[in-house]
Amino acid sequence: MRRLAIYCGSASPADTTYVEAARHVGRTLAERGIGVVYGGGRLGLMGAVADAALEAGGEVIGVIPEKLVAAEVAHRGCTELHVVQTMHQRKQMFTDLSDGFITLPGGVGTMDELWEAISWSQIGYHQLPVGLLNVAGFYDPLIAFNSQMINVGFIRPQHKDILIADADLDRLLERMAAYEPHETIERMKASNL
């Protein structure tokens, strides 16, 4: 994995656990020679990931929609900063530039990015690993909800392992590196859908 897209919040929660985890991700990826592709902001967890990766000598590529340049205070210290017109273009560029995705804690935008990465994987727009770093149990309810969708049958058996969740970054990276692409919807026969 040469580059990973990092999805995370632009907010800084009062609990510093989340910011420290974001800094750990940025630093670890840089130390492993893995570039960071992220939302292009300098605030919150986004800024923490970028700053830590840059401080450790890593490559950081920001992708930010024009409407959010001022709101998220674009990070001008990135290795590259791409300003795009729409959120769709942002997510497409994340996919085009990356070899996988890691989602850290965040809000609505982070959830949008995570679920779209999973959806695109199911359909066959990409075959990249989709990781979820479960910092301090933040994603326990989401992991349970994903299991519920699998158990009820809204996620096909072929797609149940797309989401790779782990509380440990090193283990998550190992599991992502070992990810075996699944059968995509575009390749499935109608009888299997």
Rank of each mutant, 00 (worst) to 15 (best):
I34L: 06
G35H: 10
V36A: 06
V36C: 11
V37E: 09
Y38T: 00
G39V: 00
G40Y: 06
G41I: 02
G44Q: 11
L45W: 07
L45V: 02
A48T: 01
A50L: 08
A50Y: 04
D51L: 05
A52H: 06
A52M: 05
A52K: 11
A52L: 10
A52I: 07
E55S: 11
E55V: 05
A56T: 07
E59K: 03
E59G: 11
I61Y: 13
G62V: 06
I64F: 13
P65K: 05
P65D: 06
L68W: 05
L68A: 07
V73K: 14
A74P: 11
C78K: 04
C78T: 09
T79I: 02
E80H: 14
L81G: 06
L81I: 08
H82M: 07
V84A: 05
Q85P: 03
T86I: 02
H88P: 02
Q89T: 07
K91P: 10
M93D: 04
F94G: 02
F94T: 00
T95Q: 14
S98T: 03
S98G: 08
S98N: 05
D99H: 14
D99A: 10
I102D: 09
I102G: 04
T103S: 15
L104V: 03
G106D: 01
G107P: 08
V108D: 09
V108A: 14
V108Y: 15
G109R: 14
M111D: 01
D112Y: 13
E113W: 15
E116W: 15
E116A: 12
A117I: 04
A117K: 13
S119Q: 13
W120N: 05
W120E: 00
S121R: 09
S121N: 13
Q122I: 08
I123H: 14
Y125T: 02
Q127C: 11
L128V: 01
V130E: 12
L132P: 03
N134G: 07
N134C: 02
N134P: 09
N134T: 01
V135N: 01
V135D: 01
V135M: 02
A136V: 00
A136Y: 00
G137V: 00
G137A: 07
Y139T: 00
D140R: 04
D140Q: 05
D140Y: 09
P141Q: 01
P141F: 03
L142S: 00
L142W: 01
L142K: 02
I143G: 11
I143E: 03
S147P: 00
S147Y: 04
S147N: 13
Q148P: 04
Q148D: 06
N151Y: 06
V152R: 10
V152Q: 12
V152N: 09
V152I: 12
G153R: 09
F154Q: 07
I155M: 13
I155E: 13
R156A: 15
R156C: 08
P157K: 11
P157N: 08
P157I: 02
Q158G: 03
H159R: 01
D161H: 10
D161G: 02
I162P: 03
I162D: 06
L163Y: 10
I164Q: 10
A165F: 07
A165I: 01
A167I: 00
D168G: 10
L169Y: 15
L169Q: 09
R171K: 15
R171D: 09
L172R: 13
L172C: 12
L172W: 11
E174N: 10
R175H: 14
R175D: 09
R175L: 13
R175F: 10
R175Q: 14
M176T: 02
M176P: 03
A178P: 10
Y179N: 06
